[in-house]
Design a protein around this nucleic acid. Structure first.
Lengths: 128, 128
DNA sequence: CTCGCCCTTAGAGCGTGCTCTAAGTCAAGC
DNA sequence: GCTTGACTTAGAGCACGCTCTAAGGGCGAG
């Protein structure tokens, strides 16, 4: 069972343009297969890989690092320690980033509270 | 008490280049004051504003929206409802984004667990 | 007085990550 | 057989958010 680029685009939420770009840029695990007419035909394994790198990207991993990870996976068994290190480093960065965003969001919510109170008091005033 | 651009840069973590760019691009509440020699001299109020917009930026608000918010604050009292709406919309987007990142991070952590287990088992093997 | 440094401006340049274009091929439906 | 539409390629273009450059001014330390 194989998938066209349009089907993969739909399932992953990426555009066909982006899928071709990822392939050209070396983010895939190898050449994507082709149909008789030269159209890309993705396997389930490739779909899974795209879903993974899409998660890495959406959590802020740069293309550069996704490429490094892809190179490790591509080169086969024996570098699991390197893969783990790469993922763990990413995890640390994401957690740090989440903490910053949550803290700053807190400050923004404080501001929201300020304006909410202000407007609520205003309405009370209007009612009296 | 006034601050030089270098002092504001240090306190906010932004570069002097970025501070000038924000001012040029209309993110500030007005013209920043100048010293006798033409150097920018920031007030505490301006420092506070920069810290706020820096929090908005770091939570992902586009420059475009920061400018809208600045325009509202600049135009004075009476548009508190608009300011609140803008901040609340931003808050919703940030929360949605946080949820996505956390979910995808979960999947990545699962992968980390997989490699950790794999390597741990390997080490056990090596010890026998 | 001179040196070194930080400041000024307008505007160009750049890194990232797509996103789109142009020209062409192929398969299926009418 | 012809049209339609999804696909192919290499490469150009773009949005965003800075980041840097060039040319010059002013001020404190020695």
């Amino acid at each position: 069972m194989s998938l066209s680029i349009a089907e993969v685009a739909e399932r992953t939420g990426l555009s066909a343009h982006t899928l071709r770009y990822y392939e050209r840029d070396g983010l895939m695990l190898g050449e994507v297969g082709r149909s008789a007419s030269g159209h890309r035909s993705y396997t389930e394994r490739e779909l899974g890989w795209i879903e993974l790198i899409s998660k890495l990207r959406s959590t802020g991993m740069p293309i550069r690092d996704v490429k490094k990870y892809a190179a490790l996976v591509r080169s086969g068994n024996g570098n699991e320690r390197d893969r783990l290190a790469l993922l763990q480093a990413h995890r640390e960065r994401v957690l740090a980033q989440l903490a910053v965003v949550q803290q700053h969001l807190g400050a923004i919510e404080y501001k929201i509270g300020f304006y909410s109170d202000l407007l609520e008091r205003d309405e009370d005033g209007a009612l009296t």
